[in-house]
């Protein structure tokens, strides 16, 4: 991923520092978009103060980057973001929301809507990194038109004191959504709500959650797949407990309203087995090295993110 130094949208605290449009791509603050394009008011519930509007009209051959950062103590952000991908357009977005220090005690409540028009494609990588005193809420709603394709990854390997995420994905006919989420919780509480609605025939959704609860943490993951039309959906929730006093509550839910649709799920929550640890220690790794290797593998997914030109570590 390109560094956030060249981000298309950069907001620090409540100040927009950079907006960089490109050929075929309109980038504005949400506030400006609300004024300039009245049709966007269908998507914004209220007049937005923070956040970005990205309208991708032509194919782009590199990822766009957005960054919303907290860098001062006790900042409160409420970004309202809107992304629209036009018909037949393929796009990639890397989206970073973070606190630049661990002790800023900020608040970030982001709400995003992403519209993929007919036969468009979006690969969006969403990365969060917070400090221990932050409180964060994040909701994203994806609307996929016919034959649209979405690949969405979310990673948060440094959770705030409290993190609430909500994803809703609505799929029209022949569209597909693939969601991968990786969360490593330590000294924090995470509440995940993820819902996928198969509303059009032959739509398909996959939701893959990987959660690790380290010391002093709780994770609740409610993942739901709803078939309103003929389609296929799969939920895959895996949790790894690294500390005795922490907990993971995985709640996969399948709701099928169409007899020809097929919904499946698999879920497991457990600790690293002694058998696996002994196996890796028999290869000369210490117990800590073995756990690091297992955790890195468990959370493995997309290419690493970079920030300020540096690759962010897989484990903080």
């Amino acid at each position: 991923m390109e560094s956030v130094r060249s981000a298309n949208f950069l907001q620090v605290d409540n100040e927009i520092r950079r907006i960089l449009a490109e050929k075929g791509v309109i980038v504005l603050s949400s506030r400006e978009a609300y004024k300039e394009f009245t049709w966007t008011r269908d998507y914004f519930e209220h007049k937005p103060e923070d956040g970005y509007f990205i309208w991708i009209k032509k194919p782009i051959n590199h990822p766009l980057t957005t960054c919303i950062a907290i860098s001062s103590p006790k900042v409160s952000q409420n970004p309202r973001n809107l992304v629209v991908i036009e018909r037949n357009v393929e796009a990639e977005i890397n989206s970073v929301c973070n606190a630049v220090k661990k002790n800023l005690c900020g608040s970030h409540v982001g709400r995003s809507k992403v519209v993929l028009k007919e036969n468009s494609g979006l690969k969006i990588r969403h990365f969060h990194k917070w400090g221990g005193g932050d409180v964060v809420g994040s909701s994203i709603e994806f609307s996929l038109g016919k034959r649209a394709r979405l690949f969405h990854t979310y990673r948060c390997l440094a959770v705030p004191e409290k993190l609430e995420t909500e994803n809703k994905t609505f799929l029209a006919s022949y569209s597909s959504a693939n969601f991968e989420m990786a969360v490593l919780a330590k000294d924090g509480h995470v509440d995940i709500h993820d819902s996928t609605f198969l509303n059009g025939e032959k739509s398909s959704g996959i939701s893959r959650l990987r959660m690790i609860a380290d010391e002093n943490s709780t994770i609740l993951a409610h993942s739901k797949m709803v078939a309103n039309a003929v389609g296929t959906g799969h939920l895959d929730c895996m949790g790894l407990l690294l500390a005795e006093e922490s907990s993971i509550n995985a709640v996969p839910e399948l709701l099928n309203k169409n007899k020809d649709a097929m919904l499946t799920h698999e879920a497991s929550v457990g600790k690293i087995s002694e058998e696996v640890l002994n196996y890796l220690r028999s290869r000369g790794l210490t117990e800590d090295e073995a756990i690091d290797l297992i955790v890195a593998g468990f959370l493995s997914g997309e290419a690493p993110f970079t920030h300020e030109g540096r690759v962010l570590p897989s484990k903080t």
Partner: peptide, 13 residues
């Protein structure tokens, strides 16, 4: 060992 490629382990050990 899900998620850990054999090549990754060999690289480490």
């Amino acid at each position: 060992i899900k998620g850990v490629k054999l090549s990754k382990l060999l690289e480490k050990i």
